[in-house]
Design a protein around this nucleic acid. Sequence first.
DNA 1: TTGTACGCGTTATCAG
DNA 2: CTGATAACGCGTACAA
Lengths: 349, 349
Amino acid sequence: MKQPRVTIKQVAAEAGVSITTVSHVLNDVPGLRVNPATKQRILEVSGRLGYIPNGLAQSLRTQRSHTIGLIGDEIVTTPFASKLILGAQEVALARDTVLFVVSTGYQRHVEDREIEELLRRQVDGILYASMFHRAVTLPRQLASVPTVFLNAECATPGVPWVAPDEVAGGRDAAEVLLEAGHRRLGFINNVDDIPASSGRLAGFLQRVEEAGVDASSVRVISVESEPAGGYAAAMELLDTPERPSGVFCFNDRLALGAYRACAELGLRVPDDVSIVGFDNHEYVADGVYPGLTTIELPHYDMGVWGAEHLFSLIDGDADGTGAGEVAAAESALLRGPVIHRGSVSSPST
Amino acid sequence: MKQPRVTIKQVAAEAGVSITTVSHVLNDVPGLRVNPATKQRILEVSGRLGYIPNGLAQSLRTQRSHTIGLIGDEIVTTPFASKLILGAQEVALARDTVLFVVSTGYQRHVEDREIEELLRRQVDGILYASMFHRAVTLPRQLASVPTVFLNAECATPGVPWVAPDEVAGGRDAAEVLLEAGHRRLGFINNVDDIPASSGRLAGFLQRVEEAGVDASSVRVISVESEPAGGYAAAMELLDTPERPSGVFCFNDRLALGAYRACAELGLRVPDDVSIVGFDNHEYVADGVYPGLTTIELPHYDMGVWGAEHLFSLIDGDADGTGAGEVAAAESALLRGPVIHRGSVSSPST
DNA sequence: TTGTACGCGTTATCAG
DNA sequence: CTGATAACGCGTACAA
């Protein structure tokens, strides 16, 4: 089944030339004119034999594996991750390189092992992704390899990172509600102390104040970001005459719970209460009725940004002088779009 | 930033031995006793220098890249895929090999290019995955590489494949409903003519008949498998006095639409109508209220099965005689578990 | 027990 | 315009 693959040597023999010449025409070596006739012959033979160069040998020789590693915690398991991977993969593909995707499952020893595995395979660079926006530090083994952090803020200086602009996201959510005319607001936040929860809250309140609404009037409840938590929080928030007319949920799953609470309380979305989510979780935000208006996380864009910067790091490092680092070492906060669906309308009261 | 990596030569020099000896101790060559003292020294030096063997060179030499490719259509983008990848990845990891994951986006030229890219990188084998259960044929370039199909039935003889047992799934769904005491049944199916839709229907009706219920009494409606389709179908199915008390939906998204229809018709799940989904779509099936009882697709298991069989193919081919093919060439239909949540109860009428 | 030397498939340098 | 030949880093017969 596995017949030995055809090598450049065979092509050379079959075409009656040296391997050097074959290599030359196949790689279009610049400034080197080859007799059109032999060139044609080589191309023909190569095609006929189905010759595919051995990338391992090429990489060994050129010191470029055209391979980058994407390492994440449980990144591979989550639906968000796919967008991130997709973004990185598309820019990688455009540069003829492929991705090794590995995930650690949050276990340190697995991470160590996988990083080593990546290095052993001579990846040109590494994309280190976190499933949720958080702060991390550079694993020591990565010190000698171009690395970019995705969906995480890296404390180690000189290492580029990209993460969602949570504050802007919070502001956007407030904007949607304020624009629709809501003034009595609620926010069901996540309890975890991570950039996402503090940032979205800060942005939300910020924007609310700018609109002339007293920030202390918005009721904030923090719960575990599961449907059950959203349900409980919404019950508490909405089961009162002074209930807010607009509620911002830390994420779409929380919003799911809020939907249920509304249904049980006999409140209609969006007529009685408007809801804004966060994540644009596919199959959740658009599967629910009415469709959930939500803020999308820029996963795809982070993947693209990260890969592009990784390449500039790799290329800049090509000479070993570290040039290019300065320009590439900047990090970024990316913003996702607001996805308008049916869960927000003007307040009835 | 990218300092030249340490090679085996440096380790040898530093330890005052030849590279042969270093190679021997690092690879634990069997039947070769090395002086414990030098062995210790080599290990120490190797560790101190942070030596990591160059996998490219190793592979070039040993003709084994310890790499397998996972190629799929839009597999990387979908939540199901991650389970599949995870399964494959875990068995791969256990055998010290990593996965190249690439996706074609259903474009033939992308697929050709990516397969070539995989071959160029000397993958030891290929896992060819489909996002939805369907029949496919072996791309010609893969003829010379060990290949296993995932979530697809391969028409080409000699190529192992693994797919979900749709008929069993349909039977399981019927079982759940029948067990709860339902006799008036409905089935909201997918319109597409794929193994999943025909198989689940067949299994469902089969099991229903076995229970002594006239199969022709179950109302079957085929729609596009989106929430909107499920909603429309459920409205048609349920807005009548003789409505079924138990409904099986082709997938969870369809079930989502059915939930909404129930809500609008004032029917309660599961008190007035029991619903069974399919897929166990994370964040949908358990995010909805009441939780959706559903049949899980064996994605993880397919990944494991596929990778294991791929390895047996690879190892069996090691001698080039093709031995082992016979044993490994069998294919399989895998069955997923029933996930009981709250959407099924005994019929009230 | 340890070292020398060759080959894996390429690319790149330098002659011819 | 074309062809030897030396790396790339490692594994491994074979020799010492």
